[in-house]
Design a binder for these strands. Structure first.
Lengths: 226, 226
DNA sequence: CTTCAAACATGAGTCAATTCATTTTTTCGC
DNA sequence: GCGAAAAAATGAATTGACTCATGTTTGAAG
């Protein structure tokens, strides 16, 4: 492909995101006008729309960038997870929520969530959904790893368990974001209580003697159909 | 209180909601203009804003009405819950999701969620949050009832467990709503898998021999009332 | 039955995101 | 290089939710 055009395109893409990142954080999403972003990125408002289909999509693109960082951080933990399974899960989910406010404010998260629901099928909406999917998959992966290491009962569908844990995290995060006043400590506390409950369902039943007498009732579920 | 004015106020309130309900469903939330709602309710656009602070708040008010119905339906089930605890929980959550599409479309739910995030602190945003809270509380109540009936382990915080179950439902519902194509059957299936996992953490541990060291009061088993 | 203040209704006006017809720039075959 | 086609840039026009200055109705005191 032609060099100049491609390069300018990427440059402008970056410029827009950088301008938006700065202004959204400084003035808030709502108060930041498209014109201001365009001006800061040295282009006309109309031009901006050649790069992003809407203001909301710019924000979702920023969230996606952030998400990629989180995914990488999570992957590191999964590579060498803590021994205690509950600690391992808790750590992973804490990585997610702790990272969440590094580059984005609660205001931005609220608007990102709103914009996702407004256009879940747009290119950037799908990007957001895909990100969520990747993180959920990461939790599933960790559960699976803990199972094959023998720390968790192998009888449970790691897919469902991972989803459950991720959605627990997500729901509490959502609540956290909707309440400007809630401190992160409270979010963590609420999360850890629920993690504990899930883990008690996932842990290897510590009743070796009884198992011989009464076979455990396994909650076997049909495998997810592709 | 003054009769005429109060009555006219309630009437108009109702008229607006009725008009919006009709138009949102027929044309979609976005395509429905404020002017159209106002016209159908026989008032000027400006007047409408004396009753609802924004278009989104009208939708949230509709959701709240719907939510009240769901709460009532849930209360009935709680009054006489199925014997099997997993069935009881599943039924309650299914009531929620089945009811969800009776009066509202996925499009409306998407916009309702978006509007909630845009204004979680507005009067109607808080109303939405309160509704969520009430439903979550209902699940907690059911868990608690199942505990005192002896169907579930009494050692678990019913508050956290209820929240966990409700959020599981909510998260999957959210996914369902974001994917126009997903059928309700898939939503139910995903939900039931995760419910199963949570329940295995809540159920009375069925390992009597191995639990010798555990506090004896765990083994109290009241007869089920006939 | 008047009168007045408060509450309510009105619709033209404002504001900001998005679109679009037009102009400018880039690419590429010759 | 040169001209036409394609791609990108532009900012004025559009759109639709929301506001506000103004006019109208209501309820109660005198």
């Amino acid at each position: 492909m032609s060099g100049l055009r491609e390069r300018q395109k990427t440059t402008r893409h970056r410029d827009i995101l950088a301008a938006a990142e700065y202004l959204f954080r400084r003035d808030g999403f709502r108060a930041t006008g498209i014109e201001a972003i365009a001006a800061r990125a040295n282009l006309a408002t109309g031009t901006l729309y050649n790069y992003f289909p809407s203001k909301g999509d710019i924000l979702l693109a920023l969230v996606a960038l952030d998400g990629e960082e989180v995914r990488a951080a999570g992957a590191k933990l999964i590579a060498r997870p803590p021994r205690d399974p509950e600690t391992a899960i808790t750590r992973l989910l804490e990585i997610y929520i702790e990272h969440s406010l590094v580059h984005l404010t609660k205001d931005e998260w609220r608007h990102a969530l709103a914009n996702y629901f407004l256009q879940p099928d747009s290119r950037f909406g799908q990007g957001y959904a895909a990100l969520d999917g990747k993180l959920a998959a990461q939790v599933c992966e960790l559960v699976s790893a803990l199972q094959s290491r023998g720390s968790l009962s192998p009888d449970i569908d790691s897919e469902s368990a991972g989803r459950l844990l991720f959605y627990l995290c997500n729901s509490e995060f959502t609540l956290f974001v909707a309440n400007e006043a809630m401190p992160m400590a409270e979010l963590k506390q609420r999360m850890s209580r629920q993690i504990a409950i899930v883990m008690s369902g996932l842990e290897r039943k510590a009743a070796p003697l009884a198992e011989a007498a009464a076979p455990p009732r396994l909650h076997r579920r049909p495998r997810k159909a592709a």
